[in-house]
């Protein structure tokens, strides 16, 4: 058996040295420093050295601590959770679209039914974006049609047909009486009924804070994204899923 056990590395193999910083809601002084040392000790650092303590206003103290952690990780136990698609850069996404489609990829987005919350939709679609990432409008090879809030599912599908959409983005924030699930099912039904049989159906991507990603198949959609999803993840997924579909076809 090969030994795959590792400790944190400071400057010597096996020394277990780590560094961390944190703030405690305690006025600066000897009591605060002792509290920081105890805090670090309870995190498993032994010894724990409080190397820096600084008052942040009258009620808080900021600390930098160095210490030895006894934690050992067996690399054989490490599980890598990989998303089913690679995360691409904006440039790579644009290139992929161009070489795959030879035209711009059309995304039609809306919040459907009674839901008036466009926060999530706009975070993904608006150039302004989310979490430091630009929205889908920023990608040269994506054409975004943002229908906004409270769109009727039938109307969404009509527009998707008219725009020859490659993907529908449906955002749902309100979850009263499972409205979000109901609305998404309606979109799937309308799409099945209203999409011309001669052309491939667009991908249906759903987003919202209360969705369970594993429910995609049950709701009749291709992918569900949960809270914290960034525009680049959505764009990367679209490119990946459309490529997969072409391979299958």
């Amino acid at each position: 058996m090969t030994m795959n056990l590792v400790r944190a590395y400071g400057d010597t193999t096996g020394d277990g040295m780590v560094q961390l910083s944190f703030t405690l809601p305690v006025p600066a002084g000897p009591r605060a420093e002792a509290a920081a040392a105890l805090f670090a000790a309870k995190m498993g650092l032994d010894p724990a050295m409080v190397v820096h303590a600084k008052a942040v206003g009258p009620d808080f103290t900021f600390f930098v601590v160095y210490g030895r952690s006894g934690v050992i990780v067996d690399l054989d136990e490490v599980e890598v959770h990989e998303r089913e698609f690679p995360l691409l850069t904006a440039k790579e996404i644009n290139l992929e679209v161009r070489s795959m489609l030879g035209r711009r990829l059309v995304v039609v987005g809306a919040t459907v039914g009674t839901d008036a919350h466009t926060v999530g939709l706009d975070a993904i679609l608006n150039v302004k974006g989310f979490a430091g990432e630009k929205g889908l409008e920023y990608y040269r090879e994506l054409r975004v049609v943002n229908l906004g809030a409270q769109v009727d599912p039938a109307h969404l599908v009509e527009r998707a047909v008219a725009e020859q959409a490659d993907a529908l983005l449906v955002s749902q924030v309100v979850t009263q009486r499972d409205a979000h699930l109901h609305h998404v099912r309606l979109v799937a039904e309308e799409l099945a009924a209203g999409w011309p049989a001669t052309t491939p159906r667009p991908l249906v991507v759903v987003g919202g804070p209360r969705f369970e990603p594993r429910m995609a198949a049950e709701l009749g959609v291709d992918r569900i994204f949960a809270k914290g999803t960034t525009p680049r993840e959505v764009a990367s997924y679209l490119v990946h899923a459309l490529a997969q579909r072409r391979v299958a076809a």
């Binding site: 910083s21 944190f22 703030t23 600084k54 942040v56 808080f60 900021f62 979490a131 430091g132």
Partner: peptide, 14 residues
């Protein structure tokens, strides 16, 4: 911490 997390109290102080 720009673009990573909402700044901590200490981030602002630093």
């Amino acid at each position: 911490t720009e673009g990573i997390v909402t700044p901590f109290l200490s981030d602002r102080d630093l």
